[in-house]
Computed example of a mutant assay.
Amino acid sequence: MIYCINATVFTGTEWLENASVGIADGRIQSVLPTPFEGNNETDTVIDFQGDYLVPGLIDLQLYGGSTWFLNEQPTPDTVRHIYGTHSRNGTTTLLPTIHSTSLEVMQQAMAAVQVVRSENPYGVPGLHIEGPYFNPIKRGAHSTAYVRTPAEGELEALFSTNADAIRILTLAPEILTPDQLTTIKNRKHDHTLLSLGHSNATYQQATDAFNTGFIPLATHLYNAMRGFESREPGVVGAVFDHPDVRASIIADGYHCDLAAIRIAHKQLGERLFLISDALFANPPRPEFTLGQFVVHYEADSNPQRPGCYVNDEGKLAGSAITLIDCVRVCVDRVELSLTDALRMASTIPADIIGLGDQLGAIRPGYVANLLRLNRSLTPISVWASGLQLPSPTNTAQ
Rank of each mutant, 00 (worst) to 15 (best):
Y222E: 09
I250W: 00
V239E: 03
E232T: 11
N223E: 11
G237N: 03
A224V: 09
D252S: 06
D257I: 08
N211A: 10
L217R: 00
R231K: 13
F240G: 06
R262T: 14
P233Q: 14
Y222Q: 07
P216V: 06
A238N: 05
D244R: 13
I215N: 00
G234T: 04
D252I: 06
I261A: 02
D252K: 03
A224G: 11
L258A: 12
A251Q: 07
V239Y: 03
S230G: 13
H255A: 05
R231S: 11
R262I: 10
I249K: 02
L258M: 09
F214V: 10
E229I: 08
I215F: 03
F210M: 08
I249Y: 03
T212V: 04
D257T: 13
V245L: 07
A247P: 02
A259M: 14
M225D: 01
G227T: 07
G234H: 02
H255F: 04
L221Q: 03
G213E: 12
R262Q: 15
Y254H: 15
A259S: 11
V239T: 04
R231L: 11
M225C: 09
Y222T: 07
E232N: 07
D252G: 06
I261W: 01
A247K: 02
D241G: 14
F240L: 14
I215L: 06
M225S: 03
G253T: 04
H255V: 05
L221M: 12
F228D: 04
F214A: 08
D244A: 14
G253R: 00
N211Q: 14
G213H: 14
Y222K: 11
V235M: 07
G234S: 04
F240S: 05
R231V: 08
L217V: 06
D257P: 08
D241K: 05
